[in-house]
């Protein structure tokens, strides 16, 4: 073992393991935030309780857990029209590995259009604007041209709203109403009663990412945590649709016609 053993220790406030007496690499017991995972939690804890516990020392109340679980149901499958699921299906249809299909869903679903970075941006906006319509008005109209260059493409629409939307989609409105009813939390309650005014102020209808952002913020998550949860909770649909398209086969998957606008075969010679 190296001399600097302590320097190479992994530090964690989340997880601790005890070894078997005959093997320091086999787990006798694992503790998540102090709870015995295999001795007490497995078989007794809801999956959503484990999820919540991974992010906080203490479990939230029942209403918060119910709200998180309801949101997880809503986010579980964005459907095959969503770009992230489309990407996962591109993996499935060619027989790419399971991980590649999910990586595709994560990469495409990470961005600033209907993706996890949009949730990050929207949660940041919630911190700034909270339930103040004037603040949202200023935020959505601020000049972003001088924002610091980022690895992400520049923001093109107020986050949490649908840049191609016409009116609030019924699915979005119903999710908002359900979450607000379950959690009765401040932002969701305000959003449920004021979303028309807010949409009028921003000029675009609310998107699922906007409802999810408000819910994550009400649950006490940071923008980084909300971004991570949004990526994580949308993966089940990506997995199922990738496998479904693999079984359908590439001949039954769209391969769109092309209109090449700069073709050397048709270009006039100088």
């Amino acid at each position: 073992m190296p001399d600097n053993k302590n320097a190479n220790m992994i530090r964690s406030r989340i997880w601790r393991e005890e070894p078997e007496p005959d093997n320091p690499y086999a787990t006798r017991a694992a503790y998540c935030r102090g709870y015995d995972v295999f001795g007490q939690m497995v078989g007794n804890a809801r999956w959503v309780e484990m999820l919540a516990l991974l992010f906080r020392d203490e479990l939230p109340g029942t209403a918060a857990l119910d709200m998180l679980e309801a949101l997880a149901v809503a986010l579980a499958n964005p459907g095959p029209r969503d770009p992230s699921i489309h990407a996962a299906m591109c993996g499935g249809v060619g027989g790419s590995s399971a991980a590649a299909s999910l990586i595709a869903a994560l990469s495409v679903g990470a961005g600033r259009y209907r993706g996890a970075r949009e949730v990050f941006d929207a949660m940041t906006a919630w911190k700034t604007c909270d339930t103040d319509l004037d603040a949202w008005n200023n935020y959505s109209r601020r000049d972003t041209s001088n924002d610091i260059v980022d690895t992400w493409p520049r923001r093109e629409h107020p986050p949490g709203f649908d840049p191609h939307g016409v009116s609030t989609a019924t699915s979005v409105r119903r999710l908002l109403e359900t979450l607000a009813r379950i959690g009765a939390t401040p932002r969701l309650t305000w959003l449920a009663s004021q979303h028309r005014e807010l949409e009028q102020c921003v000029g675009l209808p609310l998107d699922v990412s906007g409802v999810a952002s408000a819910a994550f913020a009400d649950l006490g998550y940071t923008p980084n945590e909300g971004e991570m949860l949004f990526l994580l909770l949308r993966l089940p649909g990506a997995a199922a649709h990738a496998l479904e398209q693999e079984s359908y086969g590439y001949k039954r998957f769209p391969f769109y016609p092309v209109e090449l606008e700069d073709d050397p075969a048709t270009r006039e010679m100088p």
Binding site: P83, G95, S101, L106, G111, G115, W152
Partner: peptide
């Protein structure tokens, strides 16, 4: 799709390379 969804270029290209390890 990563470009269209305003994801980062590294995420898009890394995923595209991962998907290239396909069966067919």
């Amino acid at each position: 799709l990563a470009g269209s969804s305003r994801s980062s270029p590294v995420l898009g290209l890394a995923a595209a390379l991962a998907v290239s390890e396909a069966r067919i």
